[in-house]
Simulated assay, not measured.
Amino acid sequence: MSQFDDFPDRDDDEEYVKSKTDVKKEMAALQELGAQIVELSDKFIARIPIEGELADAIHQARGMKHREGRRRQLQFIGKLMRKAENIEDIKTAYDRVISIGQEHTKIQHQAEQWRDRLLEEGNEALQTFVDEFPGCNVQLLRQLIRNTQKEQSQQKPPTSARKLFRYIRELIEA
């Protein structure tokens, strides 16, 4: 017989009472979510369904520089998050915003890799790129590559390299 036999097994019908530790973990998680939302740009915050006092608190925290004041403001945001009725919507929107950022970073990296490859490998890489992105303007692409190589050899500012990068990124996004 175990020392835990004195405690009845919990039935699925019984209402589960959260332990103090579970409540504290949830509070800390909501406060952390609030702190992460504060760190987002205005463009991304606009995509998250926060309103009223919570939205005001988040915008105030973004402007705070004083360490202790900001910490207290983040605690206040956590308290407001616990009271919010649409917390699942906020979490879902935050996850969506983060995935958008990750997708953008992935596209940036692909564009950088293609630009470097096109500049180093020449016609082989160009043919591979055209095969992968058939909607590209080959003549424009060749011109941008030539101009970028010329700029690099003359040690000029990378104007054409930026144009090449933008063009490649647009093709990848499309």
Rank of each mutant, 00 (worst) to 15 (best):
I87T: 15
D9E: 13
Q60V: 14
Q127A: 07
P134D: 05
G101F: 04
A46G: 02
A93P: 02
I87E: 10
R117I: 00
I37L: 06
I145M: 10
G34Q: 09
D12G: 01
T128D: 07
K106D: 15
K18L: 11
Y94P: 01
T148E: 06
E121V: 10
V23Q: 06
R71K: 15
T148V: 03
S153K: 12
D13Y: 14
R169V: 00
T159P: 00
R117G: 06
D11F: 02
E51R: 14
N137E: 13
V130I: 15
I50M: 14
E51Y: 04
Q149Y: 08
E170Y: 08
M64W: 14
N137L: 02
Y16A: 05
T128G: 10
M1N: 08
Q139G: 03
F4R: 01
D9L: 01
K24Y: 00
D95T: 13
R162W: 09
I168R: 10
D22G: 02
V138H: 03
H104R: 15
N123L: 08
W114C: 05
E103L: 08
R146C: 03
T159S: 11
E15I: 03
I58G: 01
G52W: 04
Q155G: 01
S41A: 01
A111H: 10
L141G: 10
C136N: 11
E26K: 02
R71A: 11
I77V: 14
K150L: 07
R166C: 03
A61F: 05
K25P: 11
E121A: 15
D22S: 13
V17Q: 05
K156M: 14
Y16I: 14
I98H: 02
A28E: 08
P158H: 08
G78L: 10
R117E: 10
M27P: 07
I172V: 13
I145W: 03
A84D: 07
R72G: 05
D131Q: 03
R70I: 11
T92F: 12
E68M: 07
Q143M: 13
E26S: 09
K150I: 01
H104D: 13
R72E: 05
H66P: 08
Q152L: 07
E170M: 07
E51N: 12
R82A: 09
Q113P: 05
L144G: 02
A57M: 07
L119Q: 04
L54D: 09
V38A: 02
L141A: 04
Q143I: 03
D13R: 12
I58W: 09
T159I: 06
L30K: 02
I45R: 11
D56T: 10
K43I: 10
Q110W: 11
L119D: 12
L80P: 12
D56I: 14
I98F: 03
H59I: 00
R117Q: 13
A161N: 14
D131K: 08
R71L: 12
E170G: 09
S99K: 14
K163S: 14
V97A: 15
D22K: 05
R67D: 10
F76R: 13
D9T: 09
E51S: 15
I37G: 11
F44M: 11
M64F: 04
T92I: 07
W114D: 01
E120T: 12
F165A: 00
A61W: 02
K20G: 04
D131V: 04
K25R: 13
W114G: 00
G63F: 00
E53S: 15
V23E: 06
D116H: 06
